[in-house]
Amino acid sequence: MAGIHITDIEAAINYWRERKPSPDGVTLAPELRALAEVYALMVYHRQDEAAERGFPAAAYAAWQAWYQTQPDTPCIAICSTSQGDAECKGCGRRFDEVQRWPEFSPAQKRQVWRRITQRGEAWRFNRYAERAREAASAPASPPQD
């Protein structure tokens, strides 16, 4: 089962801190409290991932709200897997990840995003970085059935 990485929880916390700042420097919004509890337990237990299944409902909802602000796919419309490459030169995903992307859970997608971002070798991070920026700023299209 996929896990939600601590850096994604940190990003979600920062998202909510900006969206719902503390009125007095002490009080936290419910979304922040929920995420902070998960974060604190992860730090205490020295874990860098929390299982997506079993994630506390309020924390998962807060994380999902942040997740929805992120680009869904790393695709930049240059897919070398369609030409037989095992890993796409454009986005960095492996062939099976490109094929199965629609059925991946949010945590699975974020795991792939983390790996390709850390490697930073795909064209989306260098040669065609401007395409990635344009795609990220474009409004999300509704899911197609």
Results as ranks from 00 to 15, higher is better:
94 R>S: 04
94 R>E: 15
94 R>T: 14
94 R>V: 12
94 R>Q: 15
95 F>H: 01
95 F>P: 00
96 D>N: 09
97 E>P: 11
97 E>Y: 00
98 V>Q: 01
99 Q>D: 06
99 Q>A: 15
99 Q>M: 08
100 R>Q: 13
100 R>D: 15
101 W>L: 05
101 W>H: 02
101 W>A: 00
102 P>R: 06
102 P>S: 05
102 P>N: 13
102 P>Y: 02
102 P>A: 02
103 E>S: 14
103 E>I: 04
103 E>R: 15
103 E>F: 05
104 F>K: 09
104 F>P: 01
104 F>H: 05
104 F>Q: 08
104 F>E: 04
105 S>T: 15
105 S>P: 07
105 S>W: 08
106 P>W: 04
107 A>N: 02
107 A>R: 02
108 Q>A: 10
108 Q>I: 01
108 Q>S: 08
108 Q>F: 01
109 K>P: 00
109 K>E: 07
110 R>H: 12
110 R>T: 12
110 R>I: 04
111 Q>D: 14
111 Q>Y: 03
111 Q>H: 01
113 W>H: 04
113 W>G: 00
113 W>R: 00
113 W>Q: 04
114 R>G: 08
115 R>D: 06
115 R>T: 14
115 R>K: 09
115 R>Q: 09
115 R>S: 07
116 I>H: 01
116 I>P: 04
116 I>C: 00
117 T>Y: 03
117 T>W: 00
117 T>K: 08
119 R>P: 02
119 R>Y: 06
119 R>L: 10
120 G>D: 11
121 E>Q: 13
121 E>W: 12
122 A>Q: 03
122 A>Y: 02
122 A>T: 06
122 A>N: 06
123 W>A: 12
123 W>S: 09
123 W>R: 07
124 R>Q: 10
124 R>W: 01
124 R>N: 02
124 R>Y: 04
124 R>K: 09
124 R>D: 06
124 R>H: 06
125 F>K: 05
126 N>V: 11
126 N>M: 11
126 N>P: 00
126 N>K: 14
126 N>T: 13
127 R>H: 11
127 R>T: 11
127 R>L: 10
128 Y>H: 04
128 Y>N: 11
128 Y>D: 15
128 Y>G: 04
129 A>W: 05
130 E>A: 03
130 E>H: 05
130 E>Y: 04
131 R>L: 14
131 R>Q: 10
131 R>M: 05
131 R>K: 14
131 R>G: 02
132 A>P: 00
132 A>K: 03
133 R>S: 08
133 R>Q: 06
133 R>A: 13
134 E>N: 13
134 E>L: 09
134 E>V: 10
134 E>C: 01
135 A>I: 12
135 A>Q: 10
135 A>S: 08
136 A>D: 14
136 A>M: 07
136 A>W: 01
136 A>P: 06
137 S>N: 05
137 S>F: 07
137 S>G: 04
138 A>F: 09
138 A>L: 10
139 P>W: 00
139 P>I: 02
140 A>N: 01
140 A>L: 06
140 A>R: 11
140 A>C: 03
141 S>P: 06
141 S>N: 10
141 S>E: 14
141 S>F: 07
142 P>G: 09
142 P>H: 00
142 P>A: 14
143 P>K: 12
143 P>V: 09
143 P>G: 07
144 Q>W: 08
144 Q>R: 15
145 D>N: 10
145 D>Q: 15
